[in-house]
């Protein structure tokens, strides 16, 4: 689809004297499932809160479904579904009352869908939310977001505190919703590895800046690890972006974002998985980098 579900330009948010988010410019395509990754404190929650309209930007702009979320909250909110970090719910309400909350606060509420989901989850409507397990609470929170039939679903670290089974079930629920209709999903996580098969786009936030953004297929196709005899990286760096380099006595390992084909045959090329790419952008160098030798002429 041509339209961007979310568009940020130079978006920044300042708290006191720190910038939780700086100069964030990105586009999230409609219909995609986008992973928002980055270490804790990188600004993921801040970005999501700006997208959902809980916060106002200090600088720059954010447009969600073409509108400003803080200015046009009343119009946008019915089309947005949100599950905040640790899936906040009112613990003293029962499951049924929580769904009633959704019904009363949302005009476009699909009550039948909500009831059917809860039934499928095997939850007793009369139980207080505070007495449910973490996974069940997350599912209730997700039900609240999905029964709005949103166009954009925003999930802040939805599976961080869940056991593997609950995690699977939660992601399945999200994917099922995507399979059923036109929903764009943004989900943030600091665990990259399980996002590869769920998401098709990725945005990496490192130290409050966007460092990497784009379709995951393209990211995986364009990044690779080059292993070769010990040498400087400048030769490669003329054509490609060297993200990380490390050296042993006899060997140099580079992780590059290739601009085109790597023709130099002295390098062995290996594919990388998403986690390694993100780690490289985060500045992690395995074994530590040794000082560079004098750059040798590379054929």
């Amino acid at each position: 689809m041509e339209n961007a579900a979310v568009r940020c330009e130079g978006l920044g948010k300042q708290y006191g004297s720190t910038w939780a988010l700086s100069d964030c410019t990105l586009e999230i395509p409609a219909g995609s499932i986008t992973a928002l990754v980055g270490p804790n404190g990188a600004g993921k929650t801040t970005l999501l809160h700006l997208v959902i309209g809980l916060m106002r930007p200090t600088k720059g702009s954010v447009a969600v479904l073409g509108q400003s979320p803080s200015a046009k909250a009343a119009e946008l909110l019915p089309r947005l579904g949100f599950v905040a970090q640790d899936h906040p719910l009112y613990r003293n309400l029962t499951v049924t009352e929580t769904l009633e909350l959704g019904r009363r606060l949302n005009p476009g509420w699909d009550a039948a869908y909500a009831r059917e989901r809860v039934a499928r989850l095997g939850l007793d409507g009369r139980r207080k939310v505070g007495k449910l397990s973490g996974g069940q609470q997350a599912q209730v929170a997700l039900t609240l977001a999905l029964a709005k039939r949103p166009q954009l679903l925003v999930l802040d670290e939805p599976v961080a505190s869940l056991d593997p089974l609950a995690r699977r079930e939660f992601l399945n629920a999200v994917l099922e919703a995507v399979a059923e209709g036109d929903v764009t999903v943004i989900l943030s996580s600091h665990i990259v590895s399980e996002l590869e098969r769920v998401c098709d786009h990725m945005v990496a936030l490192i130290q409050s800046h966007t460092r990497l953004a784009g379709p995951i297929d393209e990211i995986l196709a364009s990044h690779r690890v080059l292993i070769g005899p010990r040498t400087g990286a400048t030769g490669v760096a003329r054509v490609h972006d060297v993200i990380r380099e490390s050296h042993t006595e006899r060997q140099t390992t580079l992780l590059v974002r290739a601009n085109g084909h790597v023709y130099d045959t002295c390098w062995q090329q290996h594919e990388v998985d998403l986690e390694e790419v993100v780690l490289a952008y985060m500045g992690y160098a395995p074994g530590g980098a040794m000082p560079l030798p004098e750059p040798e002429a590379v054929a």
Partner: peptide, 15 residues
Amino acid sequence: EHRTYRLVWTQSITR
């Protein structure tokens, strides 16, 4: 305190 406003301010009513 419990930050449940993150739930209730993102339904469809204004804060």
